[in-house]
């Protein structure tokens, strides 16, 4: 069973590596396919253990559904909302900022889920994850307008919906 899993793991990374090789090369002649397959085999054998732990997760359609939903929702709704807020603050003659670094607690287990939450927070203007404490499960977030210093309320304001999606995709 474990050997089957590691073969599946190598195969998934092989697909990823070959896709990147093809996209980067920009053509699909016989030469590209042969060299791409050879390079991808080497890369996937070397790196598969480093990237995927459980190969059944990437084969789960429900996770992919949530990933696509989250990507669309994030890049349209959440990004626009955060941008509009920051643009208002920049253009306002008094520059109404109230910056602070706050401590909040996340509730996710896998590395990828934590990274997704942290990068989602950093990518929206106005909030940046400055530091992470894995033992206490804490994010230290620099917030342009610290409405509250309470960890739970700050979490609700900043990243509760990100976390919900990230856990469904990766945990």
């Amino acid at each position: 069973m474990s050997s089957l899993k590691s073969i599946l793991r190598v195969f998934l990374i092989f697909l990823l590596a070959f896709a990147i090789y093809t996209i980067y090369t920009g053509s699909l002649t016989g030469y590209d396919i042969v060299t791409g397959v050879l390079v991808s085999i080497v890369v996937s054998v070397v790196f598969s253990g480093m990237i995927i732990k459980n190969p059944l997760k990437p084969l789960n359609a429900i996770r992919w559904f949530y990933l696509i939903t989250y990507a669309i929702l994030y890049f349209t709704y959440y990004e626009t909302k955060a941008h509009v807020d920051v643009i208002k603050r920049i253009l306002h003659p008094k520059t109404p900022v109230n910056p602070a670094i706050i401590e909040t607690y996340y509730n996710a287990n896998s590395d990828y889920a934590i990274t997704t939450i942290a990068n989602s927070i950093t990518n929206t203007p106005g909030t940046v994850v400055v530091e992470i404490d894995e033992t206490r499960k804490a994010f230290y977030i620099h917030w342009i307008d610290a409405k509250t210093l309470d960890p739970l309320e700050a979490k609700r304001e900043i990243f509760e919906s990100f976390e919900k999606f990230a856990r469904r995709i990766f945990d």
Binding site: Y21, T25, V39, S44, V46, I51, I114, V129, I132
Partner: peptide, 26 residues
């Protein structure tokens, strides 16, 4: 560095090799 940077590095590692190999082989 932090867990976030490490995770991102783990994903980008094979991509760096693949892109380098593509540049050299073409």
């Amino acid at each position: 560095l932090s867990l976030i940077v490490k995770t991102v590095t783990r994903i980008t590692a094979p991509m760096i090799i693949v892109v380098g190999a593509s540049i050299a082989l073409h």
